[in-house]
Each structure stands twice: as structure tokens, then as C-alpha cells.
Design a protein around this nucleic acid. Sequence first.
DNA 1: TTGAAAGCGCTAACAT
DNA 2: ATGTTAGCGCTTTCAA
Lengths: 338, 338
Amino acid sequence: MVTIKEIANRLGVSTTTVSNVIHGKTSEVSPATIELVQKMLKECGYVPNMGARNLAQNQSRIIGIVMKERKGRYTNLLSDPFYGELVGAVEKVIRSKGYYLMMNISDNMEDIIAGAASWNVDGVIMVSLDYEDVLELRKTYKKPMVLIDCCNCPEDAEEINITVDDRKGAYDVTEYLIRSGHKRMAYFAYNTQGISGVRYEGCIRALKDYGLPWDRESFPVVSVKELGLEGAFESVCYQREDFTAVICNADYYAASLINYMEDRGVSIPEELSVTGFDDNEYARLIRPHLTTVRQSVTDKGVRAVRILTDLINGKEYRERTILLPFKMVVRDSVKILR
Amino acid sequence: MVTIKEIANRLGVSTTTVSNVIHGKTSEVSPATIELVQKMLKECGYVPNMGARNLAQNQSRIIGIVMKERKGRYTNLLSDPFYGELVGAVEKVIRSKGYYLMMNISDNMEDIIAGAASWNVDGVIMVSLDYEDVLELRKTYKKPMVLIDCCNCPEDAEEINITVDDRKGAYDVTEYLIRSGHKRMAYFAYNTQGISGVRYEGCIRALKDYGLPWDRESFPVVSVKELGLEGAFESVCYQREDFTAVICNADYYAASLINYMEDRGVSIPEELSVTGFDDNEYARLIRPHLTTVRQSVTDKGVRAVRILTDLINGKEYRERTILLPFKMVVRDSVKILR
DNA sequence: TTGAAAGCGCTAACAT
DNA sequence: ATGTTAGCGCTTTCAA
């Protein structure tokens, strides 16, 4: 690995000159030398040593993306199409802006904090974290942060939060179900915290608005965290007489549930209606095709990076919450009862 | 961010001493000072500055994973469950070994090479790249590299290649189909290069062994690269009379194809048999459930990281190719013709 | 057992 | 327009 010093020596110029050429400070150096230096740079295949550059400039060109591992759904967060798509989208934009991605998937905040500090990361994207975790990082980390789907982010938070109006999305699905004649439903989710909780509230609100009962008895929650995935499916199967529709918190759950029921001879949507959330590949592949709420995961990622790099470059943003649009997609997994 | 120097100053000791304590060189410093320093370290929340450490030690604790974007299948590589699962698994092991992951998804080798050099990455994992690309990186990058699914990696290559016996896997599926009474099949893949090509060969060999015709006419290739995904599906639909089974190069293709056909009233497997590759979530969700070839993507990732870190620590490996097991999984997407 | 000091590659303030 | 130099935070050799 050739260094600036070497280049300078070979040419009999100073390191400053070489550095200036590298950084395109054309006003500082004569056209002739620029030419010369550039040629030598290319010839020697010079690449900057990021460690050294960062040390000198006190910035790293690294953007961190942190995700908190949740047990029980997947063994591996990135197998979840949501996170896979998100990270892929983020990586692409980060690269195109000349930054590098450092990924941190962990359930250990200390790890995450140490990582951000150690690498002197220029900015951080936090995905689906509780605001308490954000605050914990904030104690030591002072550079720009953008949140994605932070469900309990206060209005006056310092960080910008990018999300969709999940409450409204859930409201709309529930409303659609009610208008289709369903009166008794169940809510299927990992738990009722975070985003799942927000959506749960949306469902409840719709039930209330339409004068339907909404207590835990009448609108039961099937929790994957409590029962495990298999257990949750069983539970739905078992209580099946109690409701006519299941609102699932993710397409993956919905598709798996449909699969499970069909395998046991329960036909969907004739005997049970099912809805999802996200509108990813699963929604289109499952049969019957899934009625669900579409959100653009890629958009979330792209927006997050754009805003973050803007912030890094000193731009100011007024709005604290960016609400991306969602759209109900009606397919074939809901039976029209009237 | 507190530095070693500061810690040293506060305690009235030298930076050497602090550094020694940090690195656990207990033989170099008295128990009393160790105690003292450790307390102060904790109190100040010291974290090392990686940039500086790397500069001083000429190593980075970063492991790079490089993947080459292929157009046409997904807009975003990580939406592919294969890559998602792989990266997730790799990240987890890397972290557990005290390294950091830097991801590079690009179709531009120059980018990739510059990245590895700039960050002075300690080791690189290359996923599904042609060996020519590996060699190109090798020209400038001299540290350990491990390959995953490098399909044209020579026996005597310097790098270790981790893969499954794809030729055999494809052979087995084809054989299964033949034994189930199928005589005319088609091959559905992105193209016939790389892994897809190897599998194609496996199919051909089985056809030959069983005395069936194997030319392009008798065993047509449906190429997603040429026709696009939709076009490829259409093409299968259109030529449907010419074969009784389609061997797909990925579960995603198989599941999507089944979906497409069923949507058009072609019932699977009665009117057309379909097989996949990978055995991921899609295989279990699609109806009929997919007969496919299982491989453990997570294993691939885990092995790659283990070997790479061993290599980084100077361990030697004899074998150049690690062949992971695969397993045919028979489900319901193939019709038994006799 | 402890410390002083050089140096890793680069940048930037300050001469010239 | 070009060069000198200090310093970023850390490791490591060598001396005390």
C-alpha cells in the first residue's frame, strides 16, 4: 500500500501538495503539478488509508445501522424480508453517497454504544428500537441519528423518526373487515409492544368507532412471544369458533397461518379470514393472496440515509416525524359476509 | 471521548501502562496499578479509538463481505432470503469473535478493491463471485480470503471455497423426476453461468445416465436473464405441452412459478411438476409444498467466518474446498407418473 | 514495574 | 504555489 509520503517523495513535492490534489483543492496547486501528481497517484494505485484519514479529521465516513435482535420470530433478523430489504436499500444509498455501512445487530445496548464510539461513526440509523434505547445511546453519542419505526418516539425528540401511520393502517384494515360483515376478530402479533402495540390500538379504535366490543375477551390477542409460533397457530385453530377473522401484524405471520390452517383442512377465507401487514413477497405467493397493508420498506431506508447525510453535512430539518404513505391492498383472504 | 493519555494523566502513570492494562498484559504491570487503571477506565467509560488502533497496529478488526449485485432478479440482493440469511449468520459470528462487518454489495470490482484496501480489512468473504473477480482482488489484496459458492474456483486455488455439491444436488433432483416417470423437463434459472451452470450440468448428466435426450431442444433452458421474470413464466406457460416438469434453480423461482400457473388455472403438480433449490421459507409456504434440495445457508456463513478468523490468526488449512451436505426434500410439487 | 518517545498515514494551520 | 510541521490516539521498542 503506497502512501502519500511515498508519492510525494517520488515526485519531489510535499505531502501537502499531494493531499491537496487528492482532495481536489485545485486552487492551491498549479495545473502542471496536479497533472503530475494525479498521474503518479493512478500509476501507484494509491488508495487512502481510512484509519489515518479518520484519525486526522475526526470523522469516519462510516454510517452505523443498528437493529435489536428479537427472540422467537426468526433465528436471524435478516431472514425477515423486512430487515433484508431495508438493509439492502440503505447499503445502496450509503455507498452511492461515498459512505460505508457498519451493521450492528445485537440485543446488547452496551455493545452498540461501544461500537458507535469506537468507530467514531458519522451517523446512526436505528431500526425499530424503543426510545429508551435511543436515549441511552444519546448519553454518549452526540452525532446525527435517524430513527426508523421508533414507536414511542416523543413529538419533541431530538431525532427524526421515519415511519408510516401504523395506527391508521390498522384502523383501516379493521374497518374494512367490519364493513365486510365481520364482528369478532383476533389480533395476531409477537406481542403488544412497539409497533405491534400501536397497530393494536388502531384496531381497538376502529372497533370502538363501530360500536363493537374490544376487550381482551372479545378481541383476543394471540401472542407469538407467549405461545411460540406453533403454539400461536394452534391457539387460533382451537379458538376458531370465537372469531371470523384474524388480523396479523405481518405478512409472514398471515401467510404462515394460512398455510397452517389449510394444511389442517380449514379453508381460507371461507372458514376464516386473514389479513397481513407489509405487502411483501409472501403476500403475493400465498394462496389465497393476502389482503394486507402495503408500505414501502425501501423508501424508509432511502429516506433515512438521505436525511442522515444531510444532517451530517449540517443541514437542518424542521419536521421531527416523517410519515410515509401506506395503502390497503385488497386481495382474496377476506370473506365478504354480506 | 476520553483517551488513553487522559486516563494516564489523571492517574499520573504513563500511557504505556494504561495500554498494557487494556490489553491484559498483566505480567508487565503491578496488580495495584492494574486495579487502579481498570477502575479509572470504567469510570471514564473508556472505549478505544479504532482508527488510531488500526493505524498503530496495521490491522483493522474489520471483515469485509462482498457480494456482486446481479440485475433482474431482485432490485435488492438482500431481499433474497439466501443473501439475507447468509449475511445475518455471518454478522452474528463475526461479532461474537470481536470483529466488525463491512458489507460491500456492488457490481463494480474497483469499488470493492478500493474498499478492502482503504479499510485495511483483515479478511474478506466473497459470495458467489466468479474466480476471475477473486483473482482481480488478489492482485492488490494479500490477506486471507474465503469464498462461498465460487463455482469456477480451481482445485489448486489459494483460497478456500465453501459450497455444496450442486452438481450432485441437481443430479439427484433430476434422477428423482426421472424415476417418478418424467421424461421431458425444462430448466428454469437466471442463466446458465455460475452455480446455475453447475446445476445445469448435473441435470444433463442425469439425463444422459438414464438415456434421455439432453440437448437444448429436449431439455430447454428458460432464462430469466433473457426473458425477464414475467417473460420466463409466460414462456413456461406457453411451451407447457413440451414437458411435464420444471427444475427451478431457486425456491423463489419455483414458488413464483407455481403461483403464476395456479393463477392461470394450471394445477400443480397434476398438470406440471415443479422443483426448487434451497429449501427456504417459500418452499414451505407455497401450495403445493415444494419438493426441493435443502442446503444450510447459515452453515455456509458460520463456516466461512470460522475459517477466515482462523486464517487471520495464522492457522493453516489443508483442504481447499469445503463441501457442505445437501438433502433432497420430497414434498408435493412433483407428480408420480407411474 | 514503569516511562519516554517514535511512528503508523493523513490533514491542516501556518510559514515561505 | 509549495513546503514544514504538529498532531490525531494508540502501540511498541527501548531504556531506566
